[in-house]
Design a protein around this nucleic acid. Structure first.
Lengths: 132, 132
DNA sequence: GCTGTCGTTGACGTCAACGTAAAGGTGGAA
DNA sequence: TTCCACCTTTACGTTGACGTCAACGACAGC
C-alpha cells in the first residue's frame, strides 16, 4: 500500500473507474502513469489530474477540452495568459450550463402542465392515483 | 397545397426537420406515411404524431420511449389503463429531469466558485478582465 | 505443477440519432 | 428535349466514451 504509487486496481477502487477507463485516459494523454516492467504505476500527479478530469466531466467538458485545460495547468503554471484562457473557456462552459438549465426548467414546467392535464382526465374517469 | 396530405418537403418546412429525419422516424415505426407510388404522403395523424415526437424529445424521452408512448396513445385511446401508464412514465421522466436539474445547479455553483478563485488569482497578478 | 488473481495489448463493438454520399426515378417548365 | 427540383433507396460515416473479447505474461499460494 504505497501512498505515492498505486496500481491500476487501487486506482479503480479509489476513484470508482474501470481499468479500461484509465488506459483510455492514458491513450488520450490525459494521465501519464509510469511503468514498472509492463505494469502501470500511478503517481500523485496522475491522481491529481484524474480528480480534475472527473470534475471536468461533471462540468460537461469533453475529454479533449479537459486535456487542453490540463496542459495549460501543467505547462503554464505561472503563465498568466494560459490561466486567462482557462478562465474564459470555463466562463463559456458556465454560460452553456446555465442555458441548459433554463431549457430544462422550461421543459419541466411544460411536462408538469401535461401531467396536471393527465391527472384531470384520470380524475374525471374516477381513477385513483397512488398518493405517492 | 393539400391540407390533409403533405409531401416530405412540406413537412420539413412546417416542422423544421430534414427528410432524413422523417424517413428515419418511419423506419423506427414512429410515423406511417402512406405511399403514392414511391412518394410518401404524410397525413394529419402523422403530423400529430410528429408533434408529440418533437415534444417528447424536448422532454428528454428517447425515441424508443416515445414510440411506446405513441402506441399507448393510439391503441388505448379510451383505455384508462394505458393513460395511467403513460402518466406514470411521464412522472418518472419528470423526476429524472428534476434530478438532472439539481445536479446541474450544483455543478454550476461549483464552477462559479472556481471562477471566482480564478478571478482572484488573476486580480492578484494585476490582470484586467473584460467587463463583459 | 496447477490454479487463481491481476495485469498487459490490440482491435473491434456499442449506443443514438441522424448525416452524407451515391445512384437513380419522375414530372413539369422552357 | 433537356433541364431542374424533388423525391427515392441503400449503405456507410459520425461522435464520445468507453465495453468487451482474445490471447497472453507474471507471480502467489498450495
Amino acid at each position: 500500500m504505497n501512498d505515492s504509487l498505486m496500481t491500476i486496481g487501487q486506482m479503480c477502487e479509489s476513484y470508482d473507474v474501470t481499468p479500461r477507463t484509465l488506459r483510455f485516459y492514458e491513450s488520450k494523454e490525459l494521465i501519464f502513469p509510469i511503468r514498472e516492467g509492463q505494469k502501470r504505476l500511478f503517481t500523485k500527479s496522475d491522481r491529481a489530474r484524474l480528480k480534475l478530469i472527473l470534475q471536468g466531466k461533471r462540468f460537461g467538458f469533453s475529454l479533449e477540452e479537459i486535456r487542453q485545460l490540463l496542459n495549460l495547468y501543467s505547462i503554464g503554471d505561472q503563465q498568466t495568459t494560459q490561466l486567462t484562457q482557462t478562465y474564459e473557456l470555463a466562463q463559456e462552459r458556465l454560460r452553456d450550463m446555465e442555458e441548459q438549465r433554463e431549457e430544462l426548467t422550461e421543459a419541466i414546467a411544460d411536462l408538469k402542465e401535461q401531467l396536471e392535464w393527465g391527472e384531470a382526465v384520470l380524475a374525471e374517469r374516477g381513477v385513483k392515483l397512488a398518493a405517492e
